[in-house]
Design a binder for these strands. Structure first.
Lengths: 347, 347
DNA sequence: TCTAGCACTCTATTGCCAGGAGTGCTAGAA
DNA sequence: TTCTAGCACTCCTGGCAATAGAGTGCTAGA
């Protein structure tokens, strides 16, 4: 089943042609557009072999061939082997550069998803870092009304989160200010978990020093911080969902609807991205290589972005299996790097 | 052109039937399902008159009649005149009651749009109040890094807004805390504009008391608050956009795409809602009675919600002109009231 | 090992026809 | 004067057959 050079080139030509035109590729059109120095009958023989090996499929007898997922996988792997996409890299990077620095990290991610979807005409997804894993730059408690407070956390990367909590007892804004000041002076750069541990530790030590009221405040705010942890499901930014209307791949309106619904629900997509956080560089998942993607007949090109050496989240593009990988892969790659660079500067 | 009672009843029957079945209504089906004591030929004559008067239209010679916008308008007006929808009111209100109290006002609006779209199977839109018009419950300034601060404003109704500002000079967190404390103690319940004026006033008075550094801080934070005003474009919560896939009214995929796009951009929809804020009670706009709706072939049922006697925003349902008005109108009405009630309690 | 040629298969399009739904009109009944 | 039964007419729809086109698979021969 190891393909000779000619078969590989022809397979590649078929994939390219199908990616471009979304039309089954016939032997004749190959001889017309590519010069392999052989006639269409030979191409037919080779196609037939490729089909037997599972790289191509056949909608019906008198139609051309279309790539199977295995065919796309072969094509993408050669892209990576030959580093073909690096050629486009510099030019694509330029486009990613158009992400300008902004104060608001969430806005940066939203704009990133817009950029990705605009440039690819597919759907873009960007997951935001979880606050529970982030290093905290600032934390603030605000009393909204009796027994109800709000926490505001700002991570070092510039992400802000507001959360609301009902408490068993009321706390004055003054006490909350004290706690805020205390935490901000001592706990900068720590994670929420670290801060919580430190608070417990301090409480034990200072039990006698603090009066009863203060220690109660301590405890309640710690409860709130505990809540921050448990409710931390992650955020997702997405754009370009309506692009799938323009794709000839989605003819069934039901399939489109299901995909839009899944992306709207966010949960499945966040899980999808979370799953592949951890490996460096761009990764490509084609159709049923992943359950979610298989169900909706799509592919995913994804890369993680970081700040320093901490991975913050992932960003990528969801498109049809017939996606233009040679264009999307370098774009996702350079966008991830650019986002990492911009988040680095926010400090 | 004044319709006699029988014509009115028949027109009403046609509208009801078309709303229910999305099929052109023939004279025969009217005689079958409704008992007007006349034969189908008579119905045909009356239909013909109704068409001449512009209430009905005719896809082609051998098809039944469908209501025109004027036909729907007539139907909706009779609903209001006869207060027919009040009958369903109490039952519908029950459904809107399922909006439970939550701490987070934004979440309440998001849930409201979900409730509206789930119950109607149309698209729901809810506009959030502008922070620049709101009474402020709490305001906080956080220093993010050199020359960059964040403002957090919490309105009395419970809406929170974070904004980021680059300043010409750096301010210490300590100075910001002073300003925050000062504003929160003196300015509770005022609007941003009121607070700004008060600050100017105070500055003049206290020029000598405050040292140079503090007055600079004063000025910079005031700049930020000015920025809060100018960038305040309003928020929009929406849900159920994908419901339009299930409607037989939208067969053209291009129309669907345009509508989804317009709702995603938000701006046009916010303007649409803003336009009709000010009049009490439910309002209905059918098709080309409004430019936006006409372009997308939809109708809008909308009502404003308030807190006390201050109007905060509007909520409504966008559906096809063939929308089930008799169900949607009372639902929008009672939901608006319910939201007003819940926001009242957040204090 | 490659290729030209031919028979074969399947799809998509077109035209046609019959059936059905619904109207419009008219003459006659109430 | 108003209503209605009946009939001719219009237009849509679905099914059927014929046709053209695209592409394959196979085979014999270079």
């Amino acid at each position: 089943m190891n393909l000779d050079k000619r078969s590989r080139l022809i397979l590649r030509a078929i994939v390219l042609s199908y990616i471009k035109n979304a039309q089954p590729v016939g032997s004749h059109s190959i001889t017309k557009h590519y010069d392999f120095g052989v006639g269409s009958a030979t191409i037919r023989n080779i196609m037939s072999n490729l089909e037997e090996d599972g790289f191509l499929s056949h909608p019906h007898t008198s139609a051309g061939r279309i790539p199977t997922e295995k065919g796309y996988r072969f094509y993408v792997d050669t892209l990576f082997e030959e580093k073909t996409f690096l050629k486009n890299q510099s030019q694509i990077t330029l486009e990613a550069e158009s992400l300008v620095q902004r104060e608001d990290a969430s806005q940066l991610l939203q704009d990133t998803s817009k950029l990705l979807s605009d440039l690819t005409h597919y759907m873009a997804i960007v997951s935001a870092p979880k606050i529970s894993a982030a290093r905290i730059n600032h934390i603030e408690f605000v009393r909204l009304r009796t027994n109800c407070i709000m926490t505001i956390t700002v991570s070092e990367a510039g992400f802000v989160q507001n959360r609301f909590f009902d408490l068993e007892k009321d706390i004055s804004q003054k006490s909350l200010n004290n706690i805020s000041d205390y935490l901000n002076s001592l706990c900068k750069g720590m994670t929420l978990d670290g801060i919580r541990k430190k608070m417990s530790h301090q409480m034990e030590k200072m039990e006698d020093l603090y009066d009863h009221l203060e220690s109660e405040t301590f405890e309640l705010t710690q409860q709130a911080m505990q809540g921050l942890h448990s409710r931390d499901t992650g955020e997702l930014y997405t754009d370009g969902a309506i692009n799938i209307f323009d794709l000839p791949d989605f003819t069934d309106i039901k399939v489109m609807k299901n995909l839009l619904k899944a992306v709207k629900e966010k949960k499945a997509v966040i899980e999808l991205l979370d799953k592949y956080i951890g490996s460096d560089g761009v990764q490509v998942f084609i159709g049923s290589e992943n359950r979610f993607l298989g169900r909706h007949g799509c592919s995913l090109v994804v890369s993680q972005y970081k700040r320093g050496d901490r991975v913050l989240g992932a960003l990528g593009v969801i498109g049809p299996t017939r996606m233009d990988y040679s264009k999307v892969i370098p774009l996702v790659d350079s966008t991830a790097k650019q986002v990492s660079r911009l988040l680095e500067d926010l400090s």
